[in-house]
Amino acid sequence: VTSPEQYIKHPLQHRWALWYFKNDKSKSWTENLRLISKFDTVEDFWALYNHIQQPSKLGFGCDYCLFKDGIKPMWEDDRNKLGGRWLMTLSKQQRHNDLDRYWMETLSLRCQLHTDCPEDVCGAVVNVRPKGDKISIWTGNCQNRDAIMTIGQQYKERLSIPIKTLIGYQSHDDTSSKSGSTTKNMYSV
């Protein structure tokens, strides 16, 4: 007789939804955003993750977005608009060396966060772009400094990013209203 440990699925704190965005210029932005699937156990997460293409295999202009069920993967969503994101901008070379590993660590990090405010994490996004891919963790309240800094430190540690290499956190408000090509960081770690 097998032990329950072997057949009981391990629950996640939240139900999550994985979205896929494919840049079809003939369609609107929201039409290009497709819900792939939802899950609320560790086993179902991996079943989905192992089933889909890795980010490095996606075409330019494509995104994966993983958000808590009920939160749309866009700044405008009520649970995103007051928040921001820890943003990793990757070099072109990193697409083949780091992108898939970073994305997998980013996805599994949300099950490991020891913050006092895990509720802060809304989701994670990977953008595949010709100039360099981007991975980000989105949180819901850019004023919640302590939780944001804890998430950023754990993120850097998980991705084994050197201490002197800084990653920045930008509020969606700043990102959406930026004039130049870069957005100022609210926090960095």
Binding site: P11, V42, W46, Y49, Q112
Partner: peptide, 18 residues
């Protein structure tokens, strides 16, 4: 309330289990 957290090794082990 209770918070469900997993450690990294457990998560990665689950990835490869059938």
């Amino acid at each position: 309330g209770t918070r469900i957290i997993y450690d990294r090794k457990f998560l990665l082990d689950c990835r490869s289990s059938p």
